[in-house]
Simulated assay, not measured.
Amino acid sequence: MSFDVFAQRFVGGEPAEAENGVLSELLAPHLMRVESESDFAELHFDDGTADFYGVAEPGTGFMVNHVSGQLAWELFVRMASAGDMALMAPGVPTMIFSEEVRQHLPEGLAEDAVVLSSGADILRTFANA
C-alpha cells in the first residue's frame, strides 16, 4: 500500500498527544533503519516492510506509507488502540478502534468513521473505498 496513512489522537475535536512511551515500545522491535534527522524509520516484519514518519515522538501523530504485508497493519492497530488514535487516508473513512474515540473526532470525521479491530479490517476498508 503506497498511499499515506496518518494517525492522530484527538480530544474535543483538536489534535492531542497520545501516550508516547507505549507507542515507542510497540514500535521498537520493528525498527530496521532510523534516520533521526528526517524523523523516518523503515520498519521490518516477517511478511513485509513499512515506511514510518514520526519515529522520534509517535505520540504526537505519525504517518506510514509503502506498507507491504499484513503484520504492519496489525502493529498500527495496536498502536492506534493504545493511543486512542484515528487512522486517516485519502478516500477512506476515518478508522477508529474504539467507539469512545468517535466523540473526540473533529466535525466531518466522526460521522463516517468506522470501528475496526484488526489489520485485515483496515485492508478491507481500503479495498471497499
Rank of each mutant, 00 (worst) to 15 (best):
G21R: 14
L23V: 02
L23K: 03
E25F: 08
L26I: 08
L26K: 06
L26H: 04
L27S: 02
L27N: 01
A28G: 00
H30P: 04
H30E: 03
M32E: 15
M32F: 11
R33M: 10
R33Q: 11
E35D: 14
E37C: 01
E37Q: 11
S38P: 00
D39M: 02
F40I: 03
F40Y: 15
A41R: 03
A41F: 01
L43C: 08
H44W: 04
F45I: 12
D46H: 11
G48A: 07
G48H: 09
G48S: 10
G48E: 11
G48T: 14
T49P: 00
T49K: 14
A50R: 12
D51G: 00
D51M: 10
D51K: 12
D51L: 11
D51T: 09
F52L: 09
Y53W: 13
A56C: 00
A56I: 11
E57S: 05
E57L: 05
E57Y: 03
P58Q: 13
P58I: 13
G59M: 08
G59V: 09
F62I: 10
N65I: 08
H66P: 00
V67W: 09
S68K: 11
G69L: 06
Q70E: 15
Q70W: 00
L71T: 15
E74C: 03
E74W: 01
E74G: 13
E74L: 04
L75A: 12
V77T: 12
